[in-house]
Design a protein around this nucleic acid. Sequence first.
DNA 1: TTGTACGCGTTATCAG
DNA 2: CTGATAACGCGTACAA
Lengths: 334, 334
Amino acid sequence: MNIYDISKKAGVSIATVSRVMNGNARVSEKTRQKILDIIAENDYTPNAFARGLGLNTMQTIGLLCADSSDQFFSRAVYYLERALRANHYDAILSCTGPDYDTRTEYLKRLLAKKVDAVILIGSSFIEAVPERNRYIIEAAAEVPIIILNGYLKAPNVYCSLCDDQEIIQQAASACLEHGRQELLFLYRADSYSGRRKLEGFKEAFAAASLPLDSRRIVLFNGSIPETKEKLLSLASEGLTFDTVIAGDDELAIGALKYAKAMNFDIPSQFAIIGYNNSQLGICCEPELTSIDNQLEFCCNNAVAALMSVLDGKPAPGKTMLSANILQRGTTDFF
Amino acid sequence: MNIYDISKKAGVSIATVSRVMNGNARVSEKTRQKILDIIAENDYTPNAFARGLGLNTMQTIGLLCADSSDQFFSRAVYYLERALRANHYDAILSCTGPDYDTRTEYLKRLLAKKVDAVILIGSSFIEAVPERNRYIIEAAAEVPIIILNGYLKAPNVYCSLCDDQEIIQQAASACLEHGRQELLFLYRADSYSGRRKLEGFKEAFAAASLPLDSRRIVLFNGSIPETKEKLLSLASEGLTFDTVIAGDDELAIGALKYAKAMNFDIPSQFAIIGYNNSQLGICCEPELTSIDNQLEFCCNNAVAALMSVLDGKPAPGKTMLSANILQRGTTDFF
DNA sequence: TTGTACGCGTTATCAG
DNA sequence: CTGATAACGCGTACAA
């Protein structure tokens, strides 16, 4: 059942049928109703591929993400998909894993599929070496690229992110002010947001004119039990710390398990601050003080900017949201 | 840059270029290399829409899911997307929320986009009233439908699921055998798997010739703190229970919070069994005994069946996997 | 081994 | 208000 069949049944030309389908041009109410009836009777649906060929779009956005099973990413995917759908776009999901080559390959694959834009979910896409971000800039020559929680200044690249640096600086400063100077900063990856969080941590020490032992900065990519072990081994090496500021809630839970293994009282003897305000943080006891990075706002902003761009209108290259600290049981301040 | 441009530059016809692109027909090595070079030089990529129109497929599978931010669903999406991609299919994700009408609408939307098949993630798609499953059967008239963790017997519908009933029956029987008779079965939804789990629970009592008070069966769809409150209120109404068998880990954590609020010793005074073996279960203290429903196998099976069907080969309408109980700190047996 | 010509289903343009 | 016709770009019989 195609547009020719419908036009034949209605005794009109395909042009008229098309006009009725797209509702823009003026058609006499009589023929309009007749065509509508015939369309309904035969439940005719325009062929999406032919439509795509003609319009050069199938209203599809590519979602590129390292690991959609991750607590944080899966929420991002959820919010993004919902916002896109509300704007009549479909989302093609593509998970790359941690590999650089896979990332570039899958991005190309999305472009080959002629998506209208690509959203990069997660700051792991932005590396410290500019050269390694070039594939993103090249992709931006073809379609708009949206980056969630990362920043890259380039034409046709639009970033929506949370001010990780400021909030970690605030959190660390608060710790220092409350007499907790033996801080440990635990983060998972040398990603854009990882680097920003680290900067915030360093800033807090600089602002307080306190020296910062580099052993207090720990880059560690492990599971909850592995994190616990890691901290146990750091402690046994003689490093003393009474507070952990973590780059995500999973690491924070690992720190919590460590504190319990050491029989520390939480939060009086040992404090923990997580990141992402994930569901993990309310599973443990005491519940996790965690930083809420306003993910839903961030996603909605990203899609709003994208829609503007796709509409030929301008959009800010960078939208930065401030984060909040959610105090629960693993700290006694904020 | 289209196939005509390439053919012109190479001094051949578009047919030859097409043959080289698709690698099937026989082309002389000389012209083949020449065309390949020109393609590489101009980095020509066939127009996906035109290709779709000609072949009537764009190698895309629709993923329909109630809520991709859910722990369980997001893992399913991850495994499915990975398996599909390995078979050169892309995944369009579509989250419906809990609404029936939205489900039917979004399914239609996927079909209108001419996906090659649709995978329904989660048993909430299968309702108890057959009439309300008809939209699935109708969709199956157009493309293969795969159901993950649900079962519907119909042509062109293929189901991959875990034997929820058997494992809950085993778990409940083990509890009864260990002298724990004051069981509470807590489940979230009257979905296919919810009903199957409930059956397993009932079976255990029947097998042990024990009476089952219907108050011990609790259908409750709430968050962790809400679940805790719900159990507190049940206890205050006089219902006694020393064991909770939960339909998912979130409910189980709620039960754990309840037990802690009551100052019960876990597991001696109060035992808990979760479901899904999610990350939530290793965040709490003690860690959750949970049922592992082999989600990764389930997803891989689903995709394998789908690939077979798309290849014109037969596939089983139902593939059932047995689950395992993972003993951790909230029980002292298994 | 290679080329020609048509079909796929839609939208857009221009003429009436 | 309506119709005829040309793109859109690719795949593929069929012919050479």
